[in-house]
Amino acid sequence: MSASVTSSEISFHPEHADNTKAIWRTFWILSFLTIVELTIGLVIYNIHKGEHPNATLVLAFKGMVCILTLAKAYYIVSVFMHLGDEVRNMIMTIIVPLCLFVWFIAAFLWDGTSWKNLKNRYNRVDVNQTEQVAPAAKEKGAKD
C-alpha cells in the first residue's frame, strides 16, 4: 500500500493490475472511433463535391460524428482520467454542472439561427458587408 497517499482519511488505493490491457484496449477504441470519424468526414467532403449536396444527409453524418466524439470523451474521462473509479458523489459533482452545456448549446445555436433569419429578413445587404454600411453623413453645419 506504500504506493498511495498516506492518510488515515483516505481508503482509496489504486488498482495494482500488472497488465495494461485496459489502457491499450481504450487506445484501440479511441483510434477506431477517430478513423470512423475521418471516414465520415471524407464522405461529407465527397457529398459537398457533388452537384446537389443533400443537406439532410450531411446533417445526419455530422450528427453521427458528434455522437462518436461524445463516445471518445467518455472513454478518455472514465478510463484515462480514472473518473469511473472515483466515489459516486464526486463523479456527480463533476458531471451534473456540465449538464448545463445541453441548454447552453441549444439556446445559443438557436439564437444564432434567429439572428441569421432576422438579418436575412430585414437587411437585404449581403450579410458580410453589414459593417461597411456608409456612416451617417456628418452635418457640416452642426458645430458644438
Binding site: 464526486m90 463533476i94 454542472p97 456540465l98 447552453f104 448549446i105 445555436l109 444564432g112 438579418k119 450579410v127
Partner: peptide
C-alpha cells in the same frame, strides 16, 4: 478536477460562441 471542470466551461464558452456566430452566417 474542479479546476478542469472550470476550464471545460471556458473552452465550452469559446466553442459555443463560435457556433453561435457560425449559425448566424449565411
Amino acid at each position: 478536477w474542479y479546476f478542469l471542470m472550470s476550464d471545460a466551461f471556458t473552452f465550452g464558452a469559446f466553442l459555443i460562441s463560435y457556433g453561435t456566430i457560425r449559425f448566424s452566417q449565411n
